[in-house]
Design a protein around this nucleic acid. Sequence first.
DNA 1: GTGAAAGCGCTAACAA
DNA 2: TTGTTAGCGCTTTCAC
Lengths: 342, 342
Amino acid sequence: MAVTIRDVAKAAGVSASTVSRALSIPDMVDPETRRRVTRVAEHLGYRPNRAARGLSTGRTGNLGLILPDLANPFFPSVVKGIQLAAHQADYQVFVADSDEDASTELGLVRVLAKQVDGIILCSPRMKPAELREAATLAPVVLVNRKERSIPSVSVDNVGGMRQIIEHLSAQGHRSVGYVGGPRSSWSNRERVRGLRVAANQNGVELVELGHFAPTFDGGTDAAEGAVISGVSAVVAYNDLVALGLLNGLRDRGVDVPGEMSVVGIDNIPMSAMVQPSLTTLDIPKDLAGRTSVDLLLRLLTEESAHVARARELATELLARHTTAPAPTTSTRPTGRSRTPRL
Amino acid sequence: MAVTIRDVAKAAGVSASTVSRALSIPDMVDPETRRRVTRVAEHLGYRPNRAARGLSTGRTGNLGLILPDLANPFFPSVVKGIQLAAHQADYQVFVADSDEDASTELGLVRVLAKQVDGIILCSPRMKPAELREAATLAPVVLVNRKERSIPSVSVDNVGGMRQIIEHLSAQGHRSVGYVGGPRSSWSNRERVRGLRVAANQNGVELVELGHFAPTFDGGTDAAEGAVISGVSAVVAYNDLVALGLLNGLRDRGVDVPGEMSVVGIDNIPMSAMVQPSLTTLDIPKDLAGRTSVDLLLRLLTEESAHVARARELATELLARHTTAPAPTTSTRPTGRSRTPRL
DNA sequence: GTGAAAGCGCTAACAA
DNA sequence: TTGTTAGCGCTTTCAC
């Protein structure tokens, strides 16, 4: 078996409790002993067993992260932001991929709840009631969606949609299509909402082309309808969909951007790798990750008596915080219209 | 605090141990009591605390996964394969991204070691000695590299390179370039080795163009050298590099595949999303994931007395296993030469 | 400043 | 078949 706190204690000629203190509350122990203990611990290669520590402190030092699809290039950046922030605070991250299955997600929350101090939940499809149940099982921070009384980190979808519509409108487009994501997706609903408002304000006609899978293939499927609809520009639910759409349009001999403009959302790495690059709305992904960790850790260190109030507070804070680095269209200079020909 | 085993015991009028048995060794308890206990447990919403269980059993029910870069589209498939297999066996997966920093990785192993039953390590850059140290801290399975006495799952790089060279040779190429990955990467060394052998056997000249970052930008950087070298075809360390290379070539006005052919390795999703699709060598990524979990779990359930032998055995098994579904070039029909014009 | 003792939630002998 | 006891590795009173 590995080296335990007692091994260190014995070797240093002190009690286990002293070792414990020397390592976690250094000032409570004589400098002399402290040094001896540290040396011995290091020499023996002692690593505290966090699970055991968790048992007595109620703190595991772990964070859980649940997301719908790691293969969606949107998420790795978020995960990286989270891991970085977590590691800096000496937390480990448990990542679980639910495979786009919202029912799995609640199960994952249950399994994780006991092994982590808090959970970051990216679940565009979970029902509000499920979210609330999840929040009773462990401290939860929502990413990319909001739910009353649960702290969350989200982006200003409405503002982002306004930017897109204004951009298109300035280019002279009067009729814009929207290739929607899953009906049950919170982000999708927000985006539709934002688009409607902005279209209305800019005298642009918005044509909703239906709901599609949030994938490359979903975009391909949407091409036919986009062509038929007669719009001159199309906004896609996300970049993956936009790329698939481009693919489908090309297959139909539609020249992009000559005959039709396409705009994506997310600014995934792939969007910059096609030529010319895809016009897209940037979402500060790693910042969202970092912010969610910060928020979660703040909740955890809050006096438990004040947690309820803290939650409300935190929600407000975040709304402002994430709105600040507002989404902007990416800025690759590629001529008049930056929509790709691919 | 959450509901514990004692709460259930009390409510069911039995002892804690009975509850424990009823839930994990059902046949050791009277059907009547068992039913009662189960009912009460369910009713109270009891969830065993796995960390606590781990403390007494020595089994945590968690697996660790360390990989260099989640943002590399190669990995999500691997992760998904791993998660699926792990969840099916009722294991959770701890994912840690080392950000391509091999020195971080050993640290991650140390931190994770106590909290997991075993670790799946994708570390192309770690030194052999570090790998062996890692293997002493926890049961370890290596992915995509081999090291004496440590079980591993890897693909038949040499065979794959042969396929690529034969493919190019059949197309009439006599001089082929290789855009190498990091000097310290195990896969890169294997690939070079395989290419040299295959080139030699097929009467093809192999021009090694140097070492580049395993990224899109790395590929872009390699374009200049590729052009100068005068080869008619280029193999890239992986698909990301290949895509960057295509980008760089296009910027230099080189027609692909008219003037130069490009072949990638990995078959990442993105490769099928460009038009026409990138010619690439498929690596069975999710299978690699599944296999590594299977292997690890087998090690864990092995009688400890036989573990040493089991390790050797397992290594052998795997070598055969992963060679079987050998890499094949992807099969998108896109005309004579399938190298993309992008 | 330090040690002894109790306990976190659970399982695994050992008795009964 | 079931309950009692001890203990996993650690922290945390409570004495000294």
